[in-house]
Design a protein around this nucleic acid. Structure first.
Length: 522
RNA sequence: CGGGGUGUAGCGCAGCCCGGUUAGCGCACCACGUUAGGGACGUGGGGGUCGGAUGUUCGAAUCAUCUCACCCCGACCA
């Protein structure tokens, strides 16, 4: 396997190739090892990993992705955990239409304008056979819709137009609804999981009688997301508020969680919006309050998407493949038997099944890989590639000594454990893995977070060290835009926990009262 | 949507510039045998409308035009 380096722009119309083993691997012909080293080319590494670990692939449909079973099962794990957290905070699931009539879509002007450039639109509802090309179909010109239907890029419009019918009085509030759905955004450039034309997500849409309650909901859901990211994904996040320039079109305030990937770039992992009365006004959702007066409803919306799967991959994986946090791993433990003959396998099997059954009873997902078509070494590598947190190997030697070899994915440490102790050992190890990959990611982020006070330092850190930068900003969109233009770094958020601190804007020198978080982002 | 590039077997690619037997190679796949505690080896075998359409030509993977898709760099974004 060779890795493809960048074209020498404008010099030669050729590609340069470098044998992979010159970089850091010996056995470059076998499966798995042909993942490029992260340091070489992060995005190439990411793409290869997604494919090799059997998570997803590009679809033949423009900009879309096929999520393969193993990749989807990670998303399912996320769904289950999130869904429980939503229910625990009083929400219920519902489902709204995929199509949004254009007139509804354009009702909230800022929202419509913000998404206008990336909408798929249904204009016809019928095909017919093409007289010019036998056997082919054409769009029936007689079947043009009177009003075009926008395929939802987000569901505020269709949902708020429905809420209008649901709300009369403060007694009808709050509405606390979540929807698991697909949405379409006709992005110019797509990347597996991180940005695809169609993606899966969850979007919560709530309606409240007071601004205060809506703000509390917005912040509560941000906390839910942060909690999920940190305790399930083992990815530390920074909670913050978006600047004017970066906030959701149609929102008063956008809150977000920002995570750092292993190349030092930021990834927005979730957003929670305080919509004020913008959508209520656009869709005329009024209610009679306790004082008997008519008022507009206050709204929030919040969402996370399959992008989280991308975040998970980029936050923890190494050159041997995925590293999955136990709480989201589709398979917790894989048992690999080592055997020469069928009768040997039979003996090991018996023991392995016993251990597997005991672990399953504790709620773990266990895979017993008794394929006789692959050698143990192959299986080790394959399950590591897929990020299974723990691997147990049982061979003749273990059968003789009454032991099991257990290997953890994150550190690749192996230890030999007594067979009757392994079942109690597994939960301890899984907890430790969950914990230590979080700590590792947190240490990495801390190391790559820099406070800077001058624009020169800002640019130097951005180019040489990368990562997050905490710096003073004068609060103006002009400065934000200028910095983005010159450095490609954006204000990821104004951290919620940023302490008040007098300083000068690194760009304009004007006074600032707190540091904000800058980074280059996905 | 602008600039650059690529589409040839499941994957990765060579062949194209300079048109000419039956389109190759590595991995993967299948069969048999030997192997098995970190990605096994040998022998044999199967698999292709060369992204699609149109054109030029006696003849097109190769040349031309159009088109679709993907990748990289911008702009846009969860």
């Amino acid at each position: 396997m060779l890795i493809k380096l960048q074209n020498l722009e404008g010099i030669l119309p050729v590609k340069l190739y470098l044998p992979f083993d010159l970089i850091n691997h010996n056995n470059y012909t076998s499966m798995g090892k042909d993942i490029p080293s992260r340091s070489e080319d992060y995005s190439l590494w990411y793409n290869e990993l997604v494919k090799k670990a059997d998570l997803a692939e590009h679809s033949d449909v423009r900009g879309c992705m096929v999520i393969k079973p193993y990749g989807y099962s990670i998303w399912e794990k996320m769904q289950q955990a999130l869904d429980k957290m939503f229910k625990d905070t009083g929400h219920m699931n519902a489902y709204f239409p995929l199509f949004v009539p254009k007139s509804l879509f354009e009702a909230e002007e800022k929202n419509a304008e913000g998404f206008a450039k990336e909408c798929a639109i249904v204009t016809h509802y019928r095909l017919k056979s093409d007289p010019q090309h036998p056997g082919k179909l054409m769009v029936d010109p007689d079947a043009q819709l009177e009003e075009e239907l926008v395929v939802r890029p987000t569901s505020e419009a269709i949902i708020w137009s429905t809420y209008k019918k649901w709300v009369q009085s403060y007694r009808d509030l709050p509405i606390l609804v979540n929807q698991w759905a697909n949405v379409v955004r006709w992005e110019m450039r797509t990347r597996l999981f991180l940005r695809t034309a169609e993606f899966l997500w969850q979007e919560g849409h709530t309606a409240h009688a007071t601004a205060d309650e809506a703000v509390r909901e917005t912040v509560q859901m941000l906390d839910v997301y942060a909690d999920f990211a940190e305790s399930f994904m083992a990815v530390p996040v920074i909670k913050g508020r978006k600047s004017e320039g970066e906030k959701f079109p149609g929102a008063i305030d956008t809150y977000c969680i920002e995570a750092m990937m292993q190349d030092g770039k930021a990834l927005q992992a979730g957003t929670s919006h305080f919509l004020g009365q913008n959508f209520a006004k656009a869709f005329d959702v009024q209610f009679t309050n306790k004082e008997g007066k008519l008022d507009y409803v206050w709204g929030t919306s919040w969402g996370v998407s399959t992008r989280l799967v991308g975040a998970l991959i980029m936050a923890h994986s190494d050159d041997d493949g995925l590293v999955l946090p136990p709480k989201l791993a589709p398979i917790h433990v894989v048992i690999v038997p080592i055997f020469k003959h069928a009768d040997e396998l039979a003996k090991i099997s018996e023991k392995a099944q016993e251990i597997a059954a005991a672990l399953k009873k504790l709620g773990f997902t266990v895979k017993f890989d008794d394929r006789d078509t692959h050698k143990p070494g192959f299986k080790f590598a394959e399950w590591e590639l897929k990020g299974v947190p723990l691997r147990l190997a049982i061979g003749p030697r273990d059968m003789e000594n009454g032991t099991v070899e257990v290997a953890r994915r994150d550190t690749k440490e192996k230890q030999v454990v007594k067979m009757d102790e392994i079942v109690s050992k597994v939960p301890v190890l899984l907890d430790d893995i969950q914990d230590s990959i979080y700590k590792k990611a947190l240490e990495f982020r801390t190391r790559l977070t820099t406070r800077v006070d001058t624009y020169d330092d800002f640019k130097r850190v951005l180019d040489e060290k990368t990562g997050f930068i905490l710096a003073h900003w004068d609060g103006t969109p002009e400065t934000e835009a200028a910095i983005k233009e010159e450095t490609k770094a954006t204000i990821r958020c104004i951290p919620l926990d940023a302490p008040a601190e007098a300083g000068k804007c690194i760009y304009s020198g004007k006074p600032s009262d707190r540091r904000v978080l800058f980074a280059r982002a996905y």
